Each structure stands twice: as structure tokens, then as C-alpha cells.
Simulated scan of single mutants.
Amino acid sequence: MLCQIVLFDGFDPLDVIAPYEVLHAGSMAAPGALRVELVSAEGPREVPGGAGPISLRATARLDPRSADLVLVPGAAGPLGDLSDPDAPVNADSIPALLGRALETGLPALLKDALDRPGLTVATVCGGSLVLAMAGLIEGRPVTTHHLGRDLLDATGAVAIDARVVDDGDLVTGAGVTSGLDLGLYLLERELGPRIAHAVEQLFAHERRGTVWQASGPVPAAF
């Protein structure tokens, strides 16, 4: 199983590193079952993050034909007005960084990923906003950082107040630290609960909250 974690200019480092370390630990706990790599839409390059002088190296190009799991992080920077994509923003704000990512080849590659049967797309924090602003997840239940839920709704996605939302081939995580929970859930889903539990113990981190799925009876109003 190949997991490609996407880097774009201004990515949030923790959105990348938290799930990367969890999934990489899963690959050590299940030798040969999982491979994790950092990629970009452009191919191998140094990719600057959005949180100070931090960059990571993409070692390959995002390839929806080969990947089994594609994980998209959010951006890091001044918040700006996430509820209004037309509001004036400074060049380093999260809305501006996400907007620039949409001007690259990334949206087309993510569309290919979502269109390919058997491939799962996952996001952390503002990663779901990248998909939503590209018009790729209209009508689908997703989560993001709580400050970005209005923008999700504005794009036609269905914002869910949950730590992790599983909509089959689309699995989304909420705020930045949810990357740990998302990574552990993906390990449980793809490699089984014993692998996920072993990594959970290694990281001394217990997953928070119930993973939301559109299944079971609809709750009555309290």
C-alpha cells in the first residue's frame, strides 16, 4: 500500500509530520504492508512550509495512478477571513496560500485521485478546504478546523463537527493535531486494530472522539 502525503508551498508542517510519523510507524509494525512518501504536484523539490523557515523535501510527484492513499494537509499562516474567499488577504495568510495551491497542477491531480476507484483521499485541517475550494467534494460530509467550517458550507460541502469523518474514499480530520487521530484511524481501517493499537502505545496518544460515518439511525433532537 502506497501512501503519498502532498506538500505545497505554505503547507502546515504539523499537518504533514503528525500523520507521516504515525503511518511510518505503522509501516514498521507491518513490514511490507505500507510505504509512505512525501510528494508534490511538481515532483521532487524542496517545499517551503508556512510556519517560519521550515521546508520538507518532496521525493516524488503525486501519482494518483500508483497511490492507494493520498493525504492532503492544510496551510499555516495568519488566519485571514476563512468564511469569505473574496475578502482582502495578505500574501502569507491561509486563504492566500490555499488559493495559490489551487493555481498549480494540484487540483487536477486530486480530481484524478478522487475519481480513481480503490484510492482513498484523506485530509488534515485545511486540506479539506483545498478540495472544497477546487469544487471536488460538493455534497460530501467532511470536517476541517472549526474556523473553516463556514467556508466548507459555502462551497457546497457538508461540514461535520467531528474529529474524524469517514465518507468511504474520503476521510477528513479536523484541527491540526487531528492528524494523529486520522493517522491512527487509517492504520486501523487499512491494516487492522492491532497495528493501530501498537502505534498508539508507541506514541502514547489515545485517539479522541467517535469517527463520524453516515450510517446507523439518525439521532433524535435532544
Rank of each mutant, 00 (worst) to 15 (best):
P44K: 12
R45H: 05
R45P: 00
E46F: 01
V47H: 01
V47C: 08
V47G: 00
G49W: 07
P53K: 11
S55R: 15
L56N: 02
R57F: 09
R61Q: 14
D63E: 10
A67M: 09
D68S: 14
V70G: 01
L71R: 06
G74W: 07
A75W: 01
G77M: 04
L79W: 01
L82C: 03
D86I: 05
A87W: 04
P88W: 08
P88F: 10
V89D: 06
N90L: 10
A91C: 00
A96G: 08
R100F: 02
A101L: 05
A101Q: 03
L106I: 12
L109H: 06
L110I: 13
D115Q: 13
T120R: 09
T120C: 12
T123K: 08
G126S: 13
V130G: 08
V130P: 01
A132V: 11
M133Q: 14
L136G: 04
E138S: 11
R140W: 00
P141D: 05
H145L: 14
H145W: 13
R149Y: 00
L151F: 02
L151Q: 14
D153T: 15
A154M: 02
A154H: 08
A157W: 02
V158N: 01
A162F: 04
V165Q: 08
D167G: 14
G168F: 09
G168K: 07
D169T: 15
T172R: 12
T172F: 09
T172G: 06
T172S: 15
G173N: 06
